[in-house]
């Protein structure tokens, strides 16, 4: 399987800093923000974004983790259920601006599940979506408010995001599964 690096550690850092600034700009500050990272790799990304903004704005921003497994739309077709990871939102999200963070935006189905999950937890003033990579192929009317990089892909390709806190390094690679499809 061929793996091509499309984002280096520096690229990821720059993209996150830019997104952090865009978030503050669009929301005119950071006082109503709650960051929610989607399990698994969205969580460290959310923490990093919140950390940048805290340094610039000088206020503490709550960061939570969200697992969408219980809201997936394909559970009844799976024979082996996925593991349910921790959901831990440290603040009441009602009347807050929730910044939802994920690594890759693809069909949009996990974001749909995440929005349902969030709305079960409260009534946020708004939900805004941050993704590191938008790879296209949407199946639902969902778009990212902030994207690190748009990467047009084919369905036979796979985007692999490596995050230092989990994988030991920061990197985004594209894998072609086509030659393995015999």
């Amino acid at each position: 399987m061929l793996e091509k690096i499309i984002l280096s550690s520096e690229d990821i850092q720059r993209a996150l800093v830019r997104i952090a600034h865009e978030i503050v700009e669009r929301n005119k500050g950071a006082h109503e923000l709650v960051f929610v990272g989607m399990q698994t790799r969205g969580v460290p990304l959310a923490k990093r974004l919140a950390h940048f903004i805290q340094e610039v704005e000088g206020i503490t921003i709550p960061v939570g983790a969200l697992d969408i497994t219980l809201y997936r739309d394909d559970l009844s077709s799976l024979n082996l259920k996925p593991i349910v990871q921790r959901t831990d939102i440290p603040a009441n999200i009602t009347d807050k601006r929730v910044i939802l963070v994920d690594d890759v935006l693809y069909t949009g189905r996990s974001i749909r599940a995440a929005m349902d999950a969030l709305i079960d937890l409260g009534r946020p003033k708004s939900i805004q979506l941050v993704v590191l990579i938008d790879r296209g192929h949407r199946e639902l009317p969902i778009r990212a408010d902030y994207a690190g990089k748009n990467i047009p892909t084919s369905r036979y390709e796979e985007i692999q995001v490596y995050i230092k806190e989990i994988d030991g390094r920061d990197e985004v690679a594209i894998l072609n599964r086509q030659e393995n499809r015999l």
Binding site: Y71, V84, R86
Partner: peptide, 27 residues
Amino acid sequence: DLVFEITDAMMEVLGREIKKVPTLRGT
């Protein structure tokens, strides 16, 4: 241990104001 791990996630649901998730609709 796996049952416990999933139970931890279910405890979070029980801690909510609305203790209901759509997971097993239709069963």
